[in-house]
Design a protein around this nucleic acid. Structure first.
Length: 826
RNA sequence: GCUCCAGUGGCGGAAUCGGUAGACGCGUUGGACUUAAAAUCCAAUUGGGUGAAUAGCUCAGUGCCAGUUCAAGUCUGGCCUGGAGCACCA
């Protein structure tokens, strides 16, 4: 065995052997229980970044730990490989997006292999390959048949920079999630998935996800945004037969309505506008259209609006009030119209103040009445000025008033969601084509399943400006109608890449199936994913879409479970000098350089060592250096003593105290490390325990000039245990040492160590003696000491005697095997 | 504004149940080895007071203020700060 550690040599060697021997292939059936460990698959952007390294290392260690514990572990990898960067690169360099993507996948695959990740590469999925997107299209058709797909003209988010529409979830602070440019509203005919049909169950089932963090669940719940209220209908005074319905969560305030607002885009707005007001209203609406989403949504902005000239009648008391249009009413939410109660809603209050609209108090806190002159009173209270409801608690009044509206035929109870349908069409080339054709006679027709995949065309001009490159193809667009055979036009929109990534985790269960996206028995066997690991940035987008897909496919009958990811670990970001690594800040660290200088084991060890997985991780060069030194130290521990170490895997018998202590330290380490991994994957403390055990072995060895037979047994036992415990993290180093010591097979196929509860603790304990809750003495005692004896020992302590002298001992609290607290008075 | 998460030495962080606060590492300082350096090894490292002392003793200390308890980093209430998400959603 070499005296020094040369990671570059041993890592390449073992990576090749593992691959050649298929060590990490996963059979579907093995007789063992299954475990599915999954990392969020990457976009093949070109090179791995440290966030990837962190993500994949965490999942890999979990997979290896579970394998050692006797599970048949599915641990696959693939590529989320459709998307705009490939197309942009194609435009810039004139290359084909497919070629660019393939090259990136090749390079990144090499990097993943260098990291020593234990993937079953035979299950690799690549979303941009026809053998995958065929099934994306097939699933689209199943959803279409089920009535979950529709096309409609709508106000959509348009990113000029990317030349495409975006889903609501892809608009961050009014800007494009990818390129950060300001998003505009456009009216376009687009494809939607009816995720709103599942709004309620997506919300309800969050409760089932006990293995998810509350932060992610709350984000999803907020995004779905369920609220309870009522729709109330108001007759328009000037126009016979016309009503304006409003959605409200505060039906208890109906007696305080003093005006009503409709969104500038409200469908009946032209009818509701009197000729005298037409010019002003038109001007206002034109202005609203021009505004960007950011300007319009800003809460800083002063609210504006114009009166329409018409009036509504309050069906509860016959009062009349004016109709206005204002852009603080949103056309997409509720009915697009709002009843305004300035006294009990801050937005209505601001608006009413500005335009001098009347106010009427209808809810009061009886103990602390407010006149609502300076601000709206929005807290609970008792109704006033509300006829027969006066004196009623406002929560009860919500129900009572809505019931009155239901009886009178001018209202109903209503549950409302913020979630909108998922806009999935994109005016781009590099995506799965939407499998639909337009026939002049038959209209929209889905492509028959046997004609799938609808292949992306090759004869495309990527440098075209102002429209999707796919529209430049001469072969793609013209086709025939599958129903009547007449000339038809192919849909040129492609699918949002999030559609492709909403089902990839299902495909891994049966990645090579060419008859189906996956066989039902296989998907039911492997899924749900036992542990999913990825970035928090997907808390809403990918994770919500995937949950929706799973539920929809369950309803279609393709699978039998209804949540895809049982446990979710959202890893923190990798920072450098306190801020997120990014090319623009110039604070990135190239994984290749780390592999080259220190080896993958050091990279793996370090990325897990300094912070718990869920927290942000601050990269430090000194920290990498420290981990490298530690691996060297472990290597030297073995190489310097190689002749004294044999393959000892069971706890040896010992007569010596110091040998007993080392054996105990090994058992303590096994217990601690196993628990730390099992309990929320606390790898940072796992690694500190590697160091503690290593230190203990060194210290033990340092005390002996030579080893007798018993010592050798004990030393070997400790060394082998250290290797096994470290094997999920330092995958190459431990494999190399395992073989140097004559180990058979791979160390990664060995079973995880078990600890003996009697040995997993120190041979003596430190009894802590407190007086009035403050530590005053520590006494080494035998752990078998009974409570009475502990009390005795504590009271005999000279320090305790000193402190209790002349005082009364009120009581003595004994915590077994730990502590005695003596309470004194006077 | 609403929701969630977090706050512990110079730094990253540790502390199953309320029971020795600061494990382990980084950094720093001192020392050993060396012609020298690197590597390695050893020691110290929360702050204040007292002390010749690197002995001992002592007080304070986990964002702030209260509370519960024999005992609080941990539990309860009220704040403060930072981060994330949502946001004119009626």
């Amino acid at each position: 065995m070499k005296e020094s550690y040369f990671p570059q040599e041993i890592e390449k060697k073992w990576q090749k052997i593992w691959e050649d021997e298929g060590v990490f292939k996963t059979p579907d059936e093995s007789g063992k229980p299954k475990y599915y460990a999954l990392s969020m698959f990457p976009y093949p952007s070109g090179k791995l970044h440290m966030g990837h390294v962190r993500n994949y290392t965490i999942t890999d260690v979990i997979a290896r730990f579970k394998r050692a514990q006797g599970y048949n572990v599915l641990h696959p990898m693939g590529w989320d490989s459709f998307g705009l960067p490939a197309e942009n690169a194609a435009m810039k360099h004139g290359a084909d997006p497919e070629h660019w993507t393939d090259e990136n996948i090749k390079y990144m695959t090499k990097q993943l292999k260098m990291l020593g990740l234990s993937y079953d590469w035979e299950r690799e999925v690549t979303t941009c390959k026809p053998d995958y997107y065929k099934w994306t299209q097939w699933l689209f058709l199943q959803l279409y048949k089920k009535g979950l797909v529709y096309k409609k003209e709508a106000a959509v988010n348009w990113c000029e920079q990317c030349g495409t529409v975006l889903a609501n979830e892809q608009v961050i602070d009014g800007k494009c999630w990818r390129c950060d440019s300001v998003v505009e509203k456009k009216y376009l005919s687009q494809w939607f998935l009816k995720i709103t049909d599942y709004a309620d169950v997506l919300l309800e089932d969050l409760d089932k996800l006990t293995g998810w963090g509350d932060n992610v669940k709350t984000m999803q719940a907020n995004w779905i945004g369920k609220s309870h209220g009522a729709v109330l209908k108001f007759k328009v005074k000037e126009i016979e037969g016309l009503e304006v319905p409003v959605y409200t969560t505060r039906p208890d305030t109906v007696y305080g309505i003093t005006y009503l607002v409709v969104a500038p885009e409200y469908k009946d707005i032209e009818k509701l506008t009197t000729p005298e007001n037409k010019e002003a209203v038109e001007k206002y609406r034109a202005n609203a259209r021009k505004m960007t989403e950011i300007e319009r949504l800003s809460t800083e902005r002063v609210k504006t609006g114009v009166p329409l000239g018409t009036h509504c009648i309050n069906p509860f008391n016959g009062e009349e009030f004016p109709l206005w249009t204002a852009d603080y009413a949103l056309v997409e939410y509720g009915t697009g119209a709002v009843m305004a109660v300035p006294t009990h809603d801050t937005r209505d209050f601001d608006f009413a103040k500005k335009y001098n609209l009347p106010m009427k108090v209808v809810i009061q806190d009886p103990k602390n009445p407010s006149d609502c002159k300076n601000e709206a009173y929005i807290d609970p209270g008792v109704l006033v000025n509300s006829e027969e409801f006066n004196g009623m608690n406002n929560e009860d009044a919500k129900k009572a008033i809505t019931e009155k509206a239901v009886k009178g035929g001018f209202g109903e109870f209503k549950t409302q969601y913020r979630l909108r349908d998922w806009l999935i069409s994109r005016q781009r080339y590099w995506g799965a084509p939407i499998p639909v054709v337009y026939c002049e006679k038959c209209g929209i027709q889905p492509v028959p399943e046997e004609q799938l995949p609808v292949m992306l065309p090759k004869d495309v001009d990527f440098k075209v400006v102002g429209k999707s490159p796919i529209t430049t193809s001469k072969t793609f667009i013209e086709t025939t109608c599958p129903v009547c055979g007449a000339k038809a036009r192919r849909e040129t929109d492609t699918m949002d890449t999030f559609v492709c990534s909403s089902w990839y985790y299902l495909r891994y269960s049966d990645a090579k199936n060419d008859k189906m996206p996956f066989a039902k028995d296989k998907v039911n066997h492997w899924l749900p994913v036992d542990q999913y690991v990825g970035g928090i940035e997907h808390a809403i987008l990918h994770l919500l879409y995937s949950r929706f897909f799973t539920k929809a496919l369950r309803d279609i009958g393709l699978l039998d479970f209804d949540e895809p990811f049982k446990n979710l670990l959202t890893q923190g970001m990798v920072l450098k000098d306190g801020s997120k690594m990014s090319k623009s800040k110039g604070n990135t660290v190239d994984p290749d350089e780390i592999f080259e200088n220190y080896g993958a084991d050091t990279a793996r060890l370090f990325i897990l060592s300094d912070s718990p997985p869920a927290r942000d991780f601050d990269w430090s060069d000194a920290g990498v250096e420290g981990c490298y030194k530690f691996l060297n130290r472990v290597w030297r521990l073995i190489s310097a003593n190689i002749d004294d170490i044999s393959l000892v895997e069971t706890t040896p018998h010992t007569a010596k105290k110091e040998n007993d202590d080392l054996i105990r330290n090994v058992h303590i380490a096994i217990k601690g490390i196993t628990n730390d991994i099992s309990n929320d994957f606390q790898f940072n403390t796992v690694i500190s325990k590697y160091r503690e055990l290593t230190n203990a072995i060194y210290e033990w060895r340092g005390k002996k000039s030579s080893l007798d037979d018993e010592d050798k047994q004990v030393f070997s036992f400790a060394a082998i245990a250290l290797m096994k415990l470290m094997s999920p993290v330092a995958v190459h180093l431990t494999e190399e040492i395992w073989h140097e010591l004559g180990g058979k097979g791979s160390i990664h196929e060995q079973t995880w160590l078990k600890w003996d509860e009697n040995l997993a603790k120190a041979s003596s304990i430190t009894l802590v003696v407190q007086v009035n809750g403050k530590v005053k003495d520590k006494i080494e005692v035998d752990e078998s000491l009974a409570e009475d004896e502990m009390k005795q020992v504590a009271l005999e302590s000279s320090k305790v005697k000193e402190l209790t002298d002349g005082k009364t001992i009120v009581k003595v609290i004994v915590v077994p095997k730990k502590l005695v607290n003596i309470v004194v008075k006077g």
